[in-house]
Amino acid sequence: MNQDWPLFEVFVRGKRGLNHVHVGSLHAADERMALTHARDLYTRRNEGVSIWVVRSSDITASTPDEKDPFFEPSGDKVYRHPTFYDIPDDVPHI
């Protein structure tokens, strides 16, 4: 039997109002152990109020290169950004 524990990715919410952020990974036998290990490893100084763990093998990722066609659909849509629109300087609050 394989005694090497699987790899988990750890996400920590630093404080209320923030998203969970990926902080690293660790090995654990199961999800519950991954959570307690994550607490001991990544939040020894109150770095978080909430932790997610997920098996690394369960993560689906885009391909790495930022020039990848995967992100192309958003590349040419400049009109999604507020700076695309010319508004006269004397219009307030916009």
Binding site: M1, N2, Q3, D4, W5, A29, D30, M33
Partner: peptide, 16 residues
Amino acid sequence: GAWVRRAAAAHAKKQA
């Protein structure tokens, strides 16, 4: 520590 790692893995497998 080997037996602890094995035991935890066996426990996880049983739970799953």
